[in-house]
């Protein structure tokens, strides 16, 4: 029995006669029956996993595009959409140095490269401390400072004030040893990131745009809405499972030393 046959059966591609013949063959072939069961379960599992996406509210810009309201009868190219978004965002960013950041391009750059680029910008920039909470460390790595560092050291995931400037997400032990914590900050723009406690500092592993406000609201409710780059960064590092509330509080008491 070749692949195509069981697959067509599982995918509902056989007509009534073919189906009956296949089912007759299935009855006498436990191995094939097992395969069909597995593949049916796989199909259902994969489909179910992505079904919740359909319930998410559609952004206004996409509705406008579908109504033909965006840029009438003109093809909008991606770069321009992005420029517009950046222009729109500029007003909300207080510092000139920040304006030059192109987060969208950086969102998925490997952490080491990103840290290098950021550190370079900070050192060469005309603003001493361009972003509250981020600064380049002695070896060129990016470390958390100020409110971000304070939140990472002291804030527990449960019982954070709703308007906290920095919200801490999950905490875990990395395979390489140190404690790591994910965070979302609102200023200078919505950023999500991951920092690990090494050498008495919070070393920032990655920062990435946290997305629109609706996505951010969803983030609090649903882990699936975390930026993909952040999820991957966590996934690459995590040993075992995230700390539960008790383990998190315990680690905080010990100053995140293990």
């Amino acid at each position: 029995m070749n692949d195509e046959r069981w697959m067509a059966y599982v995918d509902g591609e056989l007509d009534a006669g073919e189906r009956a013949a296949f089912e007759a063959a299935l009855a006498g072939d436990p191995q094939l029956a097992q395969r069909v069961r597995e593949q049916r379960a796989l199909r259902r599992r994969v489909a179910d996993a992505f079904t919740p996406d359909l319930d998410e509210p559609v952004p206004e810009r996409l509705l406008a595009a579908a109504r033909g309201q965006a840029v009438a009868a003109e093809v909008v190219d991606l770069a321009r959409t992005r420029e517009q978004r950046e222009r729109r965002d500029v007003g909300r960013r207080p510092l000139r140095a920040v304006r030059d950041w192109r987060w969208p391009e950086w969102g998925a750059i490997a952490a080491s490269v990103l840290v290098g680029v950021l550190a370079g910008r900070f050192v060469g920039g005309d603003v001493a401390e361009p972003v509250a909470g981020l600064a380049s460390g002695p070896n060129g790595a990016l470390v958390a400072r100020g409110p971000l560092a304070a939140a990472l050291s002291t804030q527990l995931a449960s019982g954070q004030p709703g308007d906290a400037a920095v919200r801490v997400g999950i905490s875990f032990v990395a395979r390489s040893g140190p404690y790591c914590r994910s965070f979302v900050m609102a200023q200078p723009s919505r950023l999500a990131g991951l920092a690990c406690r090494e050498g008495g500092q919070w070393q920032v592993q990655l920062v990435t745009p946290a997305g629109h406000d609706d996505a951010a609201a969803g983030y609090r409710a649903a882990g699936a809405a975390l930026p993909a780059a952040l999820l991957r960064a966590i996934d690459e590092r995590i040993a075992g499972t995230p700390l539960d509330a008790a383990a998190e509080a315990d680690a905080a008491r010990r100053g995140w030393q293990n």
Binding site: F50, D53, L54, D55, E56, V58, P59, R61, L62, A65, A66, A70, V71, E74, V75, V76, D77, L78, T81, R82, P104, G107, A108, P209, G211, A215, A225, P227, A228, A229
Partner: peptide, 26 residues
Amino acid sequence: PRLRRFARLITRDREDADDLVQLGVE
């Protein structure tokens, strides 16, 4: 909603996905 879901599968990035949907719809 389905276009967004498909775009996420293609791009594996939510923002890229919406950009792709917008481009596709236009």
